[in-house]
Every structure is written in structure tokens, then in C-alpha cells.
Design a protein around this nucleic acid. Structure first.
Ligand SMILES: Nc1ccn([C@H]2C[C@H](O)[C@@H](COP(=O)(O)OP(=O)(O)OP(=O)(O)O)O2)c(=O)n1
Length: 290
DNA sequence: CATCGTCATCGAG
DNA sequence: TTACGCTCGATGACGATG
């Protein structure tokens, strides 16, 4: 005991696109671009994710489909609508494999998992590496999917580590290496720092986590609020005590839809709204929360 | 003052 | 020529309420 925790974070590689490659092995040699269509005939919408063959041309999540088409033109790219039932089933099956390998388990998104393997490792990161390799093999064996894993002394470091080398990565950050590892990373590798916060830090000349670490916590609290400020101060030091496996009941159930084109036709809008409301109600009823 | 509901903003995946 | 999704969580400001 008293060796500190060992936390593992697993992120499935280019998940939706990899799932499609598994369903359609003949696609795997080509750029695969999974899309959310608002109008499939006209090819309108955005990219949900893309495999690495497509990413090589600059295609990425959130990009408008027309831009992806330009980038991938003449490259034999395959554009597909999402098959969410498939992704849900794979996610569920993979969760079962992952959770077998550690005491505390948590699924943080459709393709991300945390595992607290402290009891199994007792501070030994070689054991942690062995567990990571076993998990990877288990997922490959049953589902043929690859993932990237990060291991560190807490969720923050494990999460950043899993993103450090991908696809197919395994990054282990020993407790005594955490600060060196973090210091040279750009600030927006810290979860919670997105576009706006990065813009703020850019303007202040704060580029790396090392720069952030030198920033006065009082300033951070004033600028981003007490909670976020405190989080940033700690995160820059690799400090994160949050436990793995705390269940949170879902609080929001929502549906939203972009119309094929802007409209003020009440009849059309009302009909769309009926569908959305019905869908929310149905999910609510299936979900134990009333 | 404390708490509540609502709205806006930011972020993740 | 133009075209840019959807779902969910967290937080803070603000006015109403008591
Ligand atoms: N803006 C986004 C980001 C992600 N996703 C979906 C598609 C992804 O496959 C899945 C997981 O998101 P990740 O951020 O983990 O991205 P990927 O797994 O696609 O890629 P990577 O290998 O870089 O993790 O969530 C989405 O619909 N829209």
C-alpha cells in the first residue's frame, strides 16, 4: 500500500470508422469517412470520424462533408452514415472485456474506459503494462478492434497518455516522470481547455503545461472561476484525485434536428417537433428515470 | 442572504 | 455558388422568491 494508484485509460482507435471496417473488410484499404447527414441526397452534413487513410488528407471530426469530399477527391474514399446500433453493441461488448481486468471500472464515453488497477499492480508499472497488453489482446481476439492505452498515477495523466501515441499506442507515465511529460505538452491537451480557453492562453503567451504551471492560481481562479481555476492549477502539476467508477445518473435527454433547409412552415416544423418529442419521451420511458 | 429556475457559454466525443 | 451534426455535462450570471 501507499504506493499511489495505477490508472489505465483506454480509447478505441478511430472508433466509428474502425467499426465500419470490421463490418466491411473490403473498405479497410480505403479512406473511410463516417458522416452525420442532414440531407443524404445532397451530401450535406459533417464528418463524425474518419480512418487514418482519410485523416492523411486532412479529414477530421466535425468537418463539413463538402470539405472532406474536396480533400479526398479521387482517392477512392467511402462516405457512410453512422450505424449507431453497431457502435453501441461493440461498445458494450468491449466494456465487458475491459472491466474484467480491474477492480474499479468506468465507461466515460462510447469508446473510452478507465480502469483502476492499483490492487493488481501494487505500484509495479511492469504489471500494469502486462494488463494493458492483455486487454488489447482480448479486444482484438473477440472484436478485431485496436485501441490506444495510457497508464499513469491518476485519471488525468492516464487520459493524456492514451492520446499521446495512437493508433495502437501504449504510453506509460511513471509517477516520477509526470511533470517532465506534461511540461512540454501544449495546454489544450488538458481536458477542459478547448478553443476559447486556448485562445486566452495564446494571448498571454502561455503555450505549454509548463507555462501554465507558472501561472498564479489566483489569476486562474479570477479568470476561469474557482472550480476551473483550481482544476487547471492542479492539472498542470499532474494532480487529480478523482476516483474511478463513480456512477452518475443521466440528467439530460435531448433531441435536435437541422432541417434540410431553413423554413418557417409551421406545419413542417410542428411535424418535425412531434418526432423529436416522441423520441425523447421514448428514451425517458426506457430509462428508469421518470 | 440562500436557493431556485432559466439561459448562455464552453467543452468532450 | 454554397454548403458546417448531435448529445451530453459543467459552470456561472441573473432575476425572482422567500
Ligand atoms: N466531434 C466528434 C467527435 C467524436 N465523435 C464520435 C466518432 C468517434 O469515432 C467517437 C470517438 O471519438 P474520439 O474522440 O475517441 O475519436 P476517434 O475514436 O474517432 O479517433 P481517435 O483514434 O483519434 O481516438 O465519437 C463524433 O461523432 N463527433
Amino acid at each position: 500500500m501507499d504506493k499511489g494508484r495505477v490508472i489505465l485509460h483506454l480509447d478505441l482507435d478511430y472508433f466509428f470508422a474502425q467499426a465500419e471496417e470490421r463490418e466491411h473488410p473490403e473498405y479497410a484499404a480505403r479512406p473511410v469517412i463516417v458522416c452525420v447527414y442532414t440531407d443524404i441526397e445532397r451530401g450535406r452534413g459533417v464528418v463524425s470520424t474518419a480512418n487514418y487513410k482519410a485523416r492523411a488528407f486532412g479529414v477530421h471530426s466535425g468537418m463539413p462533408i463538402f470539405q472532406a469530399k474536396k480533400l479526398a477527391h479521387g482517392k477512392g474514399a467511402i462516405f457512410l452514415p453512422g450505424n449507431y446500433g453497431l457502435y453501441e453493441r461493440l461498445s458494450l461488448g468491449i466494456a465487458e472485456i475491459v472491466m474484467k481486468h480491474g477492480a474499479a471500472f468506468e465507461q466515460s464515453s462510447i469508446d473510452e474506459f478507465f480502469l483502476d488497477i492499483s490492487p493488481e499492480c501494487n505500484g509495479d508499472y511492469e504489471k500494469a503494462k502486462g494488463i494493458a497488453e492483455k486487454v488489447k489482446k482480448g479486444i482484438i481476439a473477440k472484436y478485431g478492434l485496436t485501441c490506444s492505452i495510457g497508464i499513469g498515477p491518476n485519471k488525468l495523466v492516464a487520459k493524456i497518455a492514451s492520446d499521446f501515441k495512437k493508433p495502437g499506442g501504449l504510453t506509460i507515465v511513471l509517477p516520477e516522470k509526470v511533470q517532465k511529460f506534461l511540461d512540454i505538452l501544449p495546454v489544450d491537451r488538458i481536458p477542459g481547455i478547448g478553443r476559447k480557453t486556448k485562445e486566452y492562453f495564446d494571448a498571454k503567451g502561455i503555450e505549454t503545461v509548463g507555462d501554465l504551471r507558472k501561472t498564479d492560481p489566483t489569476i486562474l481562479a479570477e479568470e476561469f472561476g474557482k472550480l476551473m481555476g483550481g482544476w487547471l492549477h492542479n492539472a498542470a502539476r499532474g494532480i487529480d484525485e478523482s476516483p474511478v467508477g463513480v456512477f452518475e445518473e443521466q440528467k439530460q435527454f435531448s433531441r435536435i434536428k437541422t432541417l434540410r433547409e431553413p423554413s418557417r412552415e409551421l406545419a413542417l416544423i410542428a411535424e418535425e417537433m412531434r418526432v423529436l418529442v416522441k423520441d425523447v419521451v421514448a428514451e425517458l420511458e426506457n430509462s428508469e428515470v421518470v
